[in-house]
């Protein structure tokens, strides 16, 4: 489905350059969730953005190959890339409030995306928009179409972002810290929605997260990034229980320091 080969991102500054991503290679199979974990500055967001060249160039230079549905995106024309972004490859970011346009209604934003990336037009596009708002759990979807982003809570905005991402029927969803900015009880709801959508549509997901528990709940495989390098990659259970790299071991030690006492309840 997606094959990334020796992807590097270098940011050129005045007199110095930073290698944010250093020869990273991985694949994502159909219906698979791959997570990238690591601390801030480790390069995980740069990977997510570099896949569709969503980085300002300069200062960034991207090298390597990104094979998506048989084509190398690094050699695709700007028009072809624009068609892929938000279409076959959809993004959901950490801050829904800054991802949505504050002066346009949900209808304008959702319908625009649908008309741009699918054959649906006019009333049909609007019908699809309502359908997706309902699927992501927004009550009174038809009425809420005329609302502006600020009339939604953070969790609801993230639901709108997921509707917008899903409405174009992507084959790859890139979710960059999709629950980090939300309150803890809302995080669970959004994560559950993401997992349910992934299962229902057999989506490929690249999940960027700093939280190993989030990864454990929804990812199949996980890659650990440190200082731009992918230091370890494997099935989630293997990485969590038999980490090989010292950095991964550290992350897991911190996680176990912060675990809750086990409860004797029937569902766990």
């Amino acid at each position: 489905m997606l094959s990334v080969e020796r992807l590097s991102v270098v940011y050129e500054g005045r007199g110095s350059s930073v290698r944010a991503v250093d020869e990273v290679s991985f694949t994502i199979e159909a219906g698979e969730v791959l997570a990238l974990v690591g601390e801030s500055g480790c390069g995980k967001t740069s990977v997510a953005l570099a896949l569709t060249k969503l980085l300002p160039m300069p200062p960034a230079t991207i090298t390597g190959r990104v094979l998506f549905e048989g084509k190398n995106l690094m050699e695709a024309s700007p028009d072809a890339l624009r068609a892929v972004r938000g279409g076959k490859i959809a993004y959901v970011f950490q801050e829904p409030a800054t991802s949505l346009n504050p002066v346009l209604t949900i209808r304008e934003q959702l319908v625009e995306v649908i008309e741009l990336h699918t054959p649906a037009r006019g009333r049909e596009a609007q019908r699809v928009a309502v359908e997706w708002l309902q699927r992501v759990g927004i009550a009174d979807a038809r009425e809420r179409l005329s609302a502006y982003p600020h009339e939604f809570s953070g969790g609801m905005q993230q639901r709108v972002m997921l509707a917008m991402a899903m409405a174009t029927r992507p084959s790859l969803l890139i979710a960059d810290e999709p629950t980090t900015a939300l309150d803890v009880t809302i995080q669970v709801q959004i994560l559950r929605l993401l997992r349910d959508l992934q299962r229902a549509y057999r989506l490929c997901v690249l999940l960027i997260s700093h939280d190993l528990t989030v990864v454990e709940r929804i990812a199949h495989r996980v890659g650990v990034m440190s200082a731009g390098k992918l230091v370890e990659l494997g099935p989630v259970a293997q990485i969590l229980h038999q980490p090989a790299h010292p950095y991964t071991k550290e992350l897991i030690r911190y996680r176990s320091m912060m675990s809750l006492p086990r409860r004797n309840t029937s569902h766990d």
């Binding site: 009880t185 709801q189 994560l191 528990t213 454990e216 709940r217 809750l260 569902h267 766990d268």
Partner: peptide, 15 residues
């Protein structure tokens, strides 16, 4: 109870 389920990211118990 809700906070505990949120902290353990319990996705399977409906809230």
């Amino acid at each position: 109870e809700l906070l505990i389920r949120a902290a353990t990211l319990d996705l399977d118990t409906p809230t």
